[in-house]
Amino acid sequence: MPEALIALGLSLKVALWATGLNLVLGTALGYALARWRFPGRELLDALLTLPLVLPPTVLGYYLLVLVGRKGWLGAWLFDTFGIRLIFTWQGAVIAAALVAFPLVLKAARSAFEQVDPQLEQAARVLGLSEWAVFCRVSLPLAWRGILAGLLLAFARALGEFGATLMVAGSIPGQTQTLSIAIYEAVQAGQDATAQLLVGITSICCVAVLVAASRLAPPSRERA
Rank of each mutant, 00 (worst) to 15 (best):
A46M: 05
F38S: 09
A153E: 08
E221Y: 02
L73G: 03
M1Y: 00
V208P: 00
E221K: 13
A18F: 07
A15V: 03
R124F: 11
A148I: 03
L141P: 08
R84K: 08
L59P: 00
G82M: 01
A18N: 02
T57V: 15
Y61H: 13
A153G: 13
A216N: 10
L158P: 02
V133K: 06
A157W: 04
L63Y: 13
V167M: 07
A132W: 08
Y31Q: 09
T177A: 02
G159S: 03
S179L: 05
L64S: 10
A216I: 00
V198I: 14
G159M: 00
L158W: 04
D116E: 09
L196S: 06
L85K: 07
Q121F: 10
R144T: 05
I200G: 01
V65L: 15
A185L: 06
E120H: 02
L147D: 00
A15C: 03
A223M: 01
V186S: 03
L12N: 07
L85S: 03
W89N: 05
L126N: 14
S110K: 12
R35T: 15
L63S: 13
I6L: 10
A192D: 14
A188N: 04
A4Y: 01
L5A: 14
I200C: 03
A207T: 12
T164N: 05
L128T: 11
R41E: 06
L10F: 07
L43Q: 05
A216R: 12
A194G: 09
P56C: 10
G145C: 05
V67F: 15
G26H: 07
I86R: 02
L10S: 03
L147A: 08
V186D: 10
A95G: 09
V133P: 13
F101D: 12
P117T: 11
G82H: 03
L178S: 07
W131M: 12
G149K: 07
E113L: 15
L63T: 12
S219V: 14
V99D: 08
A163Y: 09
P172S: 01
Y183G: 01
V186A: 12
A15R: 06
R222S: 08
G173Q: 02
V206P: 08
G30K: 12
V67R: 06
A168L: 01
V137F: 02
P172T: 03
F101P: 13
A157H: 02
F87E: 00
L139R: 05
A123H: 07
R214E: 03
L29I: 15
L197I: 09
A97H: 11
S213C: 02
A32L: 15
G82C: 01
A18S: 14
L73K: 02
A185E: 07
Q90I: 03
T19I: 04
V65G: 05
E160M: 01
L77S: 01
Q195S: 09
A194C: 10
M1F: 02
R214S: 03
A107P: 08
L54Q: 04
A157Q: 01
G30V: 11
C135R: 15
P217S: 07
L64D: 11
D79P: 00
A212G: 07
E221Q: 11
A223C: 01
F134N: 09
R144E: 06
I200Y: 05
L178R: 05
L25W: 14
G9F: 04
V137R: 05
V24Q: 01
R69Q: 13
A155G: 11
I94L: 15
Q190Y: 05
